[in-house]
Write a protein that binds this DNA or RNA. Sequence first.
DNA 1: TATAGAATTAAGCAAGTGCTCAATTCTATG
DNA 2: CATAGAATTGAGCACTTGCTTAATTCTATA
Lengths: 189, 189
Amino acid sequence: MDKGDERKKQLLRVALDVFIEKGYYGTSTREIARRAGVSSGLLFHYFSNKESIYLELVNIGVEEMKINMEIAMNAPCEYLFQTIKNTFEQLESNPFFGKMFVFMDNVQHTTVNDKEIELLLESADICKQWIPIILEGQRRGEFRDGNPHSLCVAVFGAIQGIAQEKVRIPNTPLPKIDWLMDMIVNSTK
Amino acid sequence: MDKGDERKKQLLRVALDVFIEKGYYGTSTREIARRAGVSSGLLFHYFSNKESIYLELVNIGVEEMKINMEIAMNAPCEYLFQTIKNTFEQLESNPFFGKMFVFMDNVQHTTVNDKEIELLLESADICKQWIPIILEGQRRGEFRDGNPHSLCVAVFGAIQGIAQEKVRIPNTPLPKIDWLMDMIVNSTK
DNA sequence: TATAGAATTAAGCAAGTGCTCAATTCTATG
DNA sequence: CATAGAATTGAGCACTTGCTTAATTCTATA
């Protein structure tokens, strides 16, 4: 209900769009303000600087990712299935999630000279977080062999590709989950 | 041997690095010049404007991609295997190829308001070019069923993920090709 | 109705941007 | 050696950038 909170959320939504479209450096504070139909001064009333807008979005993204990771690790196959299922369900029902997902990938591949962001990204690097789970899956013989990092990067690249497409063309149908699971799960199982 | 040609190539190499790192808008012509140890005036002696530097790189990228696509389409499995094999061999032996590969992916996901670039990208969109090949593979029953575009986006996302990693950490080992083939090829074959 | 505080604007500064251009240095060849 | 033409510089223009600030409007409540 608070007018200020509502405005701040609106500004974040607009900023997310522009950041996805043009990257960090390509986004000007004036453009965010203009697209929000607001003076650029107001933007700096709600955020202390451009970087902090980006940071706040990264933080939201990190939280969003964590929620998707909360299922326990003592069932790697189940975990993976649930994670992909959750991700796809969200991609289908919640456009903001898709944008955030793509945004987080862009963030990973863009240098923003800021140690705070770099640190945040460490905690948002899903590939790194998945490695122990994949190792466990491999130990159980449920997952394919091979460098777990490659496995991770490839699976995640695939999901990313699908997400990118979904954000660009929202009515793209998503592939079946089994199909993606097969990428990782040992087919001789 | 020509001094001017050599300089131009050097400037393109430097520009590629900066574009990958900071994206189109984040890259300033002064920074390219500075990193090349040259005045910014010289940059505009060799290129008519910033956009044309980018365009020239995109063109090189498109050519590089085309070379990897030249094997005929009447053997989808063989074609795919060869393409991935080529890509991995290049990633291993030629750092410039890897950078170009990542650059082309960044290009696809960045809006640069330029119709010429947009047109070029049409011809560089590997996903679109692969679709007929995948359809043919599916018709023969050699490839998995499912939306060919999703298949494409996923496979390509996986390869991209691997390439990104290779560029960031050059001594990352690449996964086995069979492993990637399995993503697409029908396992009941 | 009066007023404190939040929401908002418009103007503007210092620094950085893409790009130009006159002026200089280098270099190959007659 | 002389000189044409290429390579290179550095100053600078017009514009955009992130951000500030004084001034104004809105809005809730005493």
